[in-house]
Amino acid sequence: MRIRCPHCGERDNGEFSYLGDATVVRPDGMSASSEAMHDYVYLRDNPAGLHRELWYHGAGCRSWLVVTRDTRTHEIRDVSSARDVALARHTGDAA
Protein backbone atom coordinates (compact mmCIF):
# COMPACT_ATOMS: atom_id res chain seq x y z
CA MET A 1 0.00 0.00 0.00
CA ARG A 2 1.29 3.44 -0.92
CA ILE A 3 -0.16 6.76 0.13
CA ARG A 4 0.11 9.76 -2.18
CA CYS A 5 1.03 12.49 0.28
CA PRO A 6 -0.04 15.91 -1.06
CA HIS A 7 3.36 17.32 0.00
CA CYS A 8 5.80 14.44 -0.64
CA GLY A 9 4.24 12.37 -3.42
CA GLU A 10 3.59 8.63 -3.38
CA ARG A 11 5.26 7.01 -0.34
CA ASP A 12 5.34 3.56 1.29
CA ASN A 13 2.75 3.11 4.07
CA GLY A 14 5.55 2.25 6.50
CA GLU A 15 6.35 5.98 6.63
CA PHE A 16 2.91 6.74 8.07
CA SER A 17 1.19 6.20 11.41
CA TYR A 18 -2.52 5.56 11.72
CA LEU A 19 -4.91 7.22 14.12
CA GLY A 20 -8.29 5.93 12.95
CA ASP A 21 -11.68 7.18 11.84
CA ALA A 22 -11.53 10.81 10.63
CA THR A 23 -15.28 11.30 10.69
CA VAL A 24 -15.75 11.26 14.46
CA VAL A 25 -15.82 14.79 15.87
CA ARG A 26 -15.02 15.62 19.47
CA PRO A 27 -18.06 17.06 21.27
CA ASP A 28 -17.70 20.68 22.18
CA GLY A 29 -16.12 21.59 25.48
CA MET A 30 -17.11 20.57 29.01
CA SER A 31 -20.83 20.78 28.27
CA ALA A 32 -20.94 17.49 26.33
CA SER A 33 -22.93 14.68 27.93
CA SER A 34 -21.10 11.54 29.02
CA GLU A 35 -23.11 9.62 26.39
CA ALA A 36 -21.81 11.91 23.65
CA MET A 37 -18.24 11.55 24.92
CA HIS A 38 -18.64 7.76 25.12
CA ASP A 39 -19.82 7.63 21.52
CA TYR A 40 -16.95 9.84 20.38
CA VAL A 41 -14.21 7.97 22.26
CA TYR A 42 -15.35 4.36 21.85
CA LEU A 43 -17.95 3.72 19.14
CA ARG A 44 -17.00 3.35 15.47
CA ASP A 45 -18.87 2.58 12.25
CA ASN A 46 -15.98 0.30 11.19
CA PRO A 47 -17.27 -0.05 7.61
CA ALA A 48 -16.29 -2.67 5.05
CA GLY A 49 -15.83 -0.26 2.17
CA LEU A 50 -14.84 3.39 1.93
CA HIS A 51 -13.37 4.71 5.17
CA ARG A 52 -12.14 8.24 5.89
CA GLU A 53 -9.20 7.97 8.26
CA LEU A 54 -6.34 9.98 9.77
CA TRP A 55 -2.73 9.18 8.89
CA TYR A 56 0.40 11.01 10.07
CA HIS A 57 3.38 11.23 7.72
CA GLY A 58 5.99 10.90 10.48
CA ALA A 59 8.88 9.86 8.22
CA GLY A 60 8.14 12.64 5.73
CA CYS A 61 6.56 16.07 6.03
CA ARG A 62 4.99 15.34 9.45
CA SER A 63 1.58 16.38 8.18
CA TRP A 64 -1.72 14.90 9.29
CA LEU A 65 -3.69 13.58 6.33
CA VAL A 66 -7.27 12.47 5.75
CA VAL A 67 -7.14 9.38 3.52
CA THR A 68 -10.23 7.87 1.89
CA ARG A 69 -9.53 4.17 1.49
CA ASP A 70 -11.49 1.01 0.72
CA THR A 71 -11.02 -1.33 3.69
CA ARG A 72 -11.87 -4.37 1.53
CA THR A 73 -9.16 -3.79 -1.08
CA HIS A 74 -6.82 -1.16 0.47
CA GLU A 75 -7.40 0.97 -2.65
CA ILE A 76 -6.88 4.65 -1.85
CA ARG A 77 -9.39 7.02 -3.45
CA ASP A 78 -8.38 10.37 -2.02
CA VAL A 79 -5.74 11.99 0.18
CA SER A 80 -6.24 15.48 1.64
CA SER A 81 -4.42 17.56 4.20
CA ALA A 82 -6.21 17.21 7.55
CA ARG A 83 -5.80 20.95 8.02
CA ASP A 84 -7.76 21.67 4.84
CA VAL A 85 -10.46 19.20 5.90
CA ALA A 86 -10.73 20.82 9.33
CA LEU A 87 -10.85 24.32 7.89
CA ALA A 88 -13.54 23.26 5.40
CA ARG A 89 -15.55 21.74 8.26
CA HIS A 90 -15.16 24.93 10.31
CA THR A 91 -16.27 27.07 7.35
CA GLY A 92 -19.24 24.75 6.89
CA ASP A 93 -20.22 25.27 10.55
CA ALA A 94 -20.04 29.02 10.16
CA ALA A 95 -22.11 29.02 6.98
Binding site: D12, G14, Y18, H51, T73, H74
Partner: peptide, 17 residues
Protein backbone atom coordinates in the same frame (compact mmCIF):
# COMPACT_ATOMS: atom_id res chain seq x y z
CA UNK B 1 -0.78 -3.82 10.37
CA UNK B 2 -2.46 -1.02 12.28
CA UNK B 3 -5.18 0.30 9.94
CA UNK B 4 -8.82 -0.71 9.45
CA UNK B 5 -9.04 -3.62 7.03
CA UNK B 6 -11.38 -6.38 5.91
CA UNK B 7 -8.96 -7.60 3.22
CA UNK B 8 -7.45 -10.72 4.90
CA UNK B 9 -4.06 -9.64 3.58
CA UNK B 10 -1.55 -7.10 4.80
CA UNK B 11 1.35 -5.00 3.59
CA UNK B 12 5.11 -5.28 3.34
CA UNK B 13 5.96 -2.62 5.93
CA UNK B 14 4.59 -4.85 8.69
CA UNK B 15 6.28 -7.95 7.30
CA UNK B 16 9.60 -6.08 7.39
CA UNK B 17 8.92 -5.01 10.98
Amino acid sequence: DGYNSYAQRGNLATIED
